[in-house]
């Protein structure tokens, strides 16, 4: 931001420059924040309005009649939103855990020189290549594969599908995290009598925690918001995840479109993501930079 301010000499100029750059920084930040936050705030506000007010043009009167009816209707009504929240937590949580475990093991193997083997870089490159494949392109073969494995309309199938597409990024992050961990710590653990997996668990894992958090968060958010796969692979209404269930609200499977329910459902879907992100943000940022510096 300082580059925007005109250069000036002397202590006074310096002070003036820092003040003007602060002003520019704060005002730009404020404008951008408003730009990004307004739709969210708008959605949250509207989720507390009565259905008739939501579809009408915005008016001051509508804000005078705020209600939690949309939420209570979603939770207690025929839609059973909490069931779908539960489904999503299970699927997204399972994806996060499975991805983290596999990515950690793979990252450990690929990131430590101790385990280098001929072609380990090729293996890593191949894993990264799969990042470039959009999963929509292979939806049909995946459908057939899951069908063959009798994992259609099954959360395990969905978790496997999500994990597969999160693993390349996860392995990338974990490999870089392990590469950044000093090898002496591992060797010290060996000399103290720790076997490979004990060393991983007791000594290295705490050091690569930022990477694990990044991987888990990334996988969780992906699974939590993913729509097309869930729509394709899950057929029973009771097993749907939240995004697909919300679509049902919209397309009126349960009757006419209820915008109040829809917006309240979206807010409910948003909350865990926001909470998780804020809680893990510190890890998330260090995880990505740790990968970036040593990559």
């Amino acid at each position: 931001m300082t580059s925007v301010a005109a250069p000036a000499g002397g202590a006074q100029g310096k002070q003036a420059r820092s003040r003007s750059s602060t002003i520019i920084y704060v005002s730009t930040g404020t404008v951008l924040s408003i730009l990004f936050l307004l739709p969210l705030v708008w959605a949250v506000l509207r989720s507390f309005m009565q259905p008739s007010d939501i579809t009408a043009a915005p008016s001051a009167r509508a804000f005078g009649h705020l209600t939690v009816a949309n939420y209570s209707g979603l939770i207690t009504g025929s839609i059973h939103i909490l069931r779908y929240v539960g489904n999503s937590v299970l699927v997204a949580g399972g994806t996060a855990v499975l991805t983290a475990v596999l990515a950690t093991l793979a990252g450990y193997g690929l990131g430590r020189t101790r385990f280098r083997f001929r072609g380990s870089n090729v293996v890593f490159a191949l894993i990264l290549v799969t990042l470039m494949v959009p999963f929509q392109a292979i939806l049909t073969p995946l459908f057939l594969e899951l069908s063959f494995l009798h994992l259609l309309d099954n959360w395990l199938g969905l978790i496997l599908f999500y994990s597969t597409f999160n693993l390349p990024f996860g392995v990338f992050v974990m490999r870089n995290s392990f590469m950044a961990a000093p090898s002496e710590l591992e060797e010290a653990a060996y000399c103290e009598g720790a076997k490979v997996l004990t060393t991983l668990r007791t000594v290295l894992l705490p050091l690569v925690m930022p990477g694990v958090a990044t991987t888990m968060l990334y996988a969780f958010l992906f699974a939590w918001t993913e729509f097309l796969g869930a729509l394709t692979f899950i057929t029973s209404i009771n097993r749907l995840t939240l995004p697909v269930a919300l679509l049902n609200v919209e397309t009126g499977t349960f009757g006419q479109v209820n915008y109040g329910f829809l917006i309240a459902g979206a807010v409910i879907a948003m909350v865990p993501c926001a909470v998780l992100y804020v809680a893990l943000q510190r890890f998330y940022v260090t995880g990505i930079t740790a990968g970036g510096v040593k990559g």
């Binding site: 000093p182 002496e184 060797e187 010290a188 653990a189 060996y190 000399c191 009598g193 076997k195």
Partner: peptide, 20 residues
């Protein structure tokens, strides 16, 4: 015999203390 089985102690230049 891997290091685990040799019953020796190694002191590293940078100490290699477990930071956590």
């Amino acid at each position: 015999v891997p290091p685990q089985g040799r019953n020796i102690s190694f002191v590293f230049q940078n100490y290699a203390l477990f930071p956590h």
